[in-house]
Design a protein around this nucleic acid. Structure first.
Lengths: 138, 138
DNA sequence: TTATATCATTGTAATAATTACAAGTAAGAA
DNA sequence: TTCTTACTTGTAATTATTACAATGATATAA
């Protein structure tokens, strides 16, 4: 995805497209992984030598509150960010730490008792051991 | 739930029923909330004056690995522990922080692509604003 | 264009949850 | 009892994250 498209996406959501924001969002789109703030910071530092960790944190908070990213707190260690906006579930391997996406529709989950609640975010998070790690220990 | 039942439950899972472990598990059962380590520590300190935070952390780790509790990382601030073993979903209000349970069966969620994975834990975590907080701002 | 106000970025210092580690204590087996 | 193992404790260290104040950039209005 090129900078112009990213810029458009930011504007659409009402977020001012600063250079730093563009690069962070671009990074989240290009690498389909689930990086934490530190990973993003270190990845962008070479091309933005003045970048600050605080900026990365600020940026991610802004993105989250404007619905540009999805926050994942899976193992309690750190917060991961997901730029993929199509709904899906997550699986984290507790052997290698890798996070996998899988297709599922969280809207089909019923929430008895929460009729008067305003549900803003739906996360489906499974954990276990991934196929890769299962094979390693065979 | 009395100490003997808790003791039995610990033994069944292969965990040695020390006094501290019994009280922590009992606390998790009696208060159906979703406390973090600090809350548990402070609640038990009066009756176990020698209790250490480290013990609470250790105990919770042991419980988690033996399937006696479920760990919840919802907002990235801390880890909450749930002693309710029947399957259910969680909702956290990001206004008041309160966590609610709701009935749902995570086993009915399909996981295409994860056929060869070993899924050990299934968490359904929704966030938003609870009915209480919605009313406050009316 | 210039002045002004607002918003974004930066760096440092503080905070808060959690872990590492070493020493002490309790409990079960021989 | 003695020995061994496992559990608990307290302190110090670590790590992710936030608070905050100063600086820099951008947009708007005169």
């Amino acid at each position: 995805m090129d900078s112009d498209q990213i810029t458009q996406q930011l504007k659409q959501k009402g977020v001012r497209p600063s250079y730093q924001r563009i690069r962070v969002l671009q990074y989240l789109h290009d690498r389909a992984g689930h990086p934490n703030a530190e990973e993003i910071y270190e990845a962008l530092l070479p091309e933005i030598p003045t970048l600050s960790r605080t900026t990365v944190y600020n940026t991610l908070h802004v993105f989250a509150s404007f619905g540009l990213v999805n926050c994942l707190s899976i193992d309690g260690v750190d917060t991961r960010y997901d730029g993929m906006l199509e709904k899906h579930g997550h699986f984290q391997c507790h052997q290698c730490g890798m996070i996998y996406n899988f297709k599922t529709d969280p809207d089909r989950i019923e929430t008895p008792g929460l009729e008067k609640f305003k549900i803003e975010n739906k996360n489906i998070i499974f954990t276990g051991i991934c196929a890769n790690c299962i094979n390693k220990y065979k």
